[in-house]
């Protein structure tokens, strides 16, 4: 699941951006959420050293920050891919064979649900409903929507997004 504990950080995290985010909201009452969101915007996820920094600077227990981060689905504790692939497994898509689409992505990308490829290009997520049941089965890559998904289209999408620049 997407909120699994963060793995040991191997690379140093530059805390400058996190400090700037905290500076921005420091005096705002109830600033924890915007600070965490701001940090996630900067880093793509919430790295562990930033949690300790937020705890120290906002005087909030690190455990409580962790509680907040794991409560909301919007926060991520592990680095996320450049492209977030989301496949709907809601009722309509399920009936239309979403599981096969999911399995194909797993096979091709060698990752499971809520996991990221080692090159940080793709993150894959199963989601409950994307709100376009008429196009079931449905997939999204970042903000692009792909309706009437087939196994063939999975390969095309992967090929397409593998070519795109990482920045």
């Amino acid at each position: 699941m997407s909120n699994a504990p963060a793995e040991e950080q191997t690379t140093e995290i530059d805390l400058t951006a996190a400090n700037q985010v905290i500076d921005k909201y420091l005096t705002l009452p109830g600033n924890l959420m915007p600070v965490l969101q701001g940090i996630q915007d900067e880093y793509g996820y919430v790295p562990k050293p930033t949690i300790d920094l937020v705890a120290e600077r906002l005087n909030v227990y690190p455990s409580q920050i962790y509680g907040v981060l794991t409560f909301y689905a919007q926060f991520h504790l592990k680095p996320r891919g450049r492209f977030i692939i989301r496949v709907c497994v809601g009722t309509a898509c399920h009936v239309q064979g979403a599981e096969r689409i999911v399995d194909t992505f797993f096979d091709k990308l060698h990752i499971g649900h809520a996991e990221t490829t080692p090159d940080l290009r793709f993150t894959f997520e199963k989601v409950a409903c994307l709100g376009a049941c008429g196009m079931a089965p449905l997939a999204m890559v970042n903000d692009d929507t792909f309706g009437k998904m087939t196994v063939q289209k999975v390969e095309e999408i992967i090929a397409d997004f593998s070519q795109r620049p990482m920045k």
Binding site: Y61, S63, G67, T70, F71
Partner: peptide
């Protein structure tokens, strides 16, 4: 000290510590 907090949500919610460590 604040060692504990509820972590996760719904059926997966449990009493945990920072990083569930």
């Amino acid at each position: 000290f604040g060692a504990y907090t509820f972590i996760n949500r719904g059926i997966e919610a449990k009493m945990g510590t920072e990083y569930d460590g």
